[in-house]
Design a binder for these strands. Structure first.
Length: 248
DNA sequence: TGCTCTTCACACACAGCAGC
DNA sequence: GCTGCTGTGTGTGAAGAGCA
């Protein structure tokens, strides 16, 4: 069994964009770099993958992303599009027996989202993954839900900082170093379910009682103004009715 | 007995922090 | 700047305790 420690750099919709995704196929982030290391069962690095991706959705790099990653649109012009890079990545990641490792759960989600957006098959992509963030939190005696920065975890674990952060390949390298440092028998790979992520229900907007509307309706029905006491009673009755406590 | 207050559970909005 | 996740605060309803 191999561990595929990976990281993605993403671009997002700049303020002015020529082409927008079709309705129903929203892809707020587009992958522009995939960095990965393959570790064998003894956590030895046996292969590396580092490819930039030519964007075909957002032609410009968001200034914020460019500032953070140092990646420019010109730099990506000579690269291949996502489907080709993805095919190479699948060959690198090799089979369904591999376990993906990433810092946070968003990279796994974004990878599958991009595969789906480009109508590519995820058949040869392992669905087993380990999010190292909570394990690092536990190792460093933080609450398991604490979302530590990758850079903080690297420094806290005493891993030498030899490369810059916010580069997919180097971030994958650091994530791999963290895995080597904190792995234990309790670390269990989860099964990523893209369908479960897609079906997450959207929150409905919070609804408030239109008290003015209720009173106006009563005044219309009775053709007179309600007294302040009557208004209180009406609103109380409305709230009590919502509880259903007097339904038989 | 009836009212008020407290506590609990639940859902939601929002803030903060992570990612890019 | 954006998205996504988590923790916290708030609102609401239900149920029980306390008190006159």
């Amino acid at each position: 069994m191999d561990y595929i420690v990976f990281d993605l750099e993403l671009n997002q919709e700049p303020s002015s964009v020529k082409s927008r995704p079709a309705p129903g196929l929203q892809l707020p982030f587009e992958i522009i770099q995939i960095g990965a290391l393959k570790l064998d069962s003894g956590f030895n690095t046996v292969a590396a993958f580092n490819r930039y991706v030519k964007p075909d959705l957002y032609e410009k790099i968001n200034p914020f992303v460019a500032e953070l990653t140092g990646i420019t649109a010109e730099q990506l012009l000579s690269e291949q599009l996502f489907p080709e890079i993805y095919r190479e990545f699948c060959e690198f990641a090799g089979g369904e027996d591999s376990v993906f490792c990433a810092w946070g759960s968003s990279d796994m989600k974004q990878l599958y989202r991009s595969v789906e957006y480009h109508h590519l098959s995820s058949r040869h992509l392992s669905k087993k993954y380990i999010n190292l963030q909570p394990y690092a939190s536990m190792y460093l005696h933080y609450p398991v839900k604490t979302q530590l920065r990758l850079e903080y975890a690297v420094r806290a674990l005493g891993i030498p900082v030899e490369h810059s952060f916010h580069n997919a390949f180097y971030d994958a390298y650091y994530t791999g170093e963290i895995l080597k440092k904190i792995h234990n028998n309790f670390m269990k790979a989860e099964i990523y379910d893209p369908a479960a992520v897609r079906t997450r229900p959207a929150r409905s907007p919070r609804r408030t009682i239109d008290t003015q509307g209720i009173i106006e309706q009563f005044e219309k029905m009775y053709d007179r103004n309600m007294t302040s006491q009557e208004k209180d009673i009406i609103l109380l009755a409305y709230k009590m009715g919502k509880t259903g406590q007097f339904l038989k």
